[in-house]
């Protein structure tokens, strides 16, 4: 069954990541940064808890993105380069199943990392008496959806180019994704109709990664409207699915020389 094969590939991708040292190095630095936020918080007399949690939250999001990019960019390329793909595709597995299995395996790995970093964040908060609320949980969940989208970009780039180029493209998309709302606003304020239209089109095509950012609500215990959270979830899943579809189309045409 296709689903069983996808699960087998995903589980193996997870096992590979878990047994690699790069991941632990990144995770170690993230947890250390979350821990040192306690020190940063002591430097101020006001809003110490907020500084602590801001640093912790930023560490989770940034290191999550770093893991997604650095592991994701070699995801497919490494299989081709090391020729491990030869024996896998000679089994009853379609290329689409292969791509999906690898993608889901990496997403599961990254979500596990986010969960570990989230636990470290919660532990530091509890130890220092900083407040924990449900918004923090929702915001972390949506940050995880954002990372799944970043992994989808890395997977697609990895399916047809080298890790270096894939890293450049994915990092570029990550940066642009956090600025695309500014682009839209810039276009909206323009007097030129063509600039307004171009900015609108670009905003529609490029990912809007800020739509997953609920850090302010989480740290200030402000309500997160359920429609916004659901919309972000649907947007993340839909965009990732479209990207993977594009990746499959490209991957199907490739020759493994």
């Amino acid at each position: 069954m296709a689903s069983a094969r996808i699960v087998t590939l995903a589980a193996n991708t997870m096992r590979e990541a878990i047994r690699s040292r790069v991941l632990y190095t990144l995770l170690f630095f993230a947890v250390v940064l979350i821990g040192t936020s306690v020190l940063l918080a002591t430097l101020t007399y006001v809003e110490g808890h907020r500084i602590l949690q801001s640093v912790g939250f930023a560490a989770i999001r940034l290191f999550g993105a770093a893991i997604a990019i650095f592991v994701g960019i070699g995801l497919i390329h490494r299989e081709v380069e090391r020729r491990t793909i030869y024996t896998i595709l000679s089994k009853p597995i379609s290329r689409a199943e292969f791509l999906l299995g690898k993608y889901l395996g990496l997403v599961a790995t990254i979500w596990l990392q986010v969960a570990i970093m989230g636990l470290a964040f919660a532990a530091v908060s509890l130890l220092t008496g900083a407040p924990l609320n449900v918004q923090i949980g929702i915001a972390l969940g949506l940050a995880a959806v954002e990372l799944a989208l970043v992994v989808a970009f890395a997977t697609v780039f990895s399916s047809f180019t080298t890790p270096l180029l894939a890293a450049l493209f994915t990092t570029g998309i990550y940066a642009i994704g956090h600025l695309s709302r500014d682009l839209r606003d810039f276009g909206a304020n323009s007097e030129s109709e063509s600039i307004r239209l171009a900015a609108q089109i670009l905003y529609r095509i490029l990912p809007d990664l800020e739509s997953f950012n609920f850090t302010t609500q989480a740290l200030h215990a402000l309500p997160i409207p359920s429609n916004e959270a659901v919309l972000a979830l649907v947007y993340g899943i839909g965009y990732s699915a479209l990207l993977l579809l594009l990746g499959v189309v490209v991957f199907e045409r490739r020759d493994f020389k």
Binding site: N12, R15, E16, R19, S20, R82, R83, T84, Y86, T87, S90, K91, P92, I93
Partner: peptide, 18 residues
């Protein structure tokens, strides 16, 4: 149909972590 087919590539490479 590949469930009935076996393949050994030249100088085979496998996941070394397994």
């Amino acid at each position: 149909f590949r469930r009935h087919v076996g393949f050994l590539p030249e100088n085979p490479y496998f996941y070394e972590f397994l």
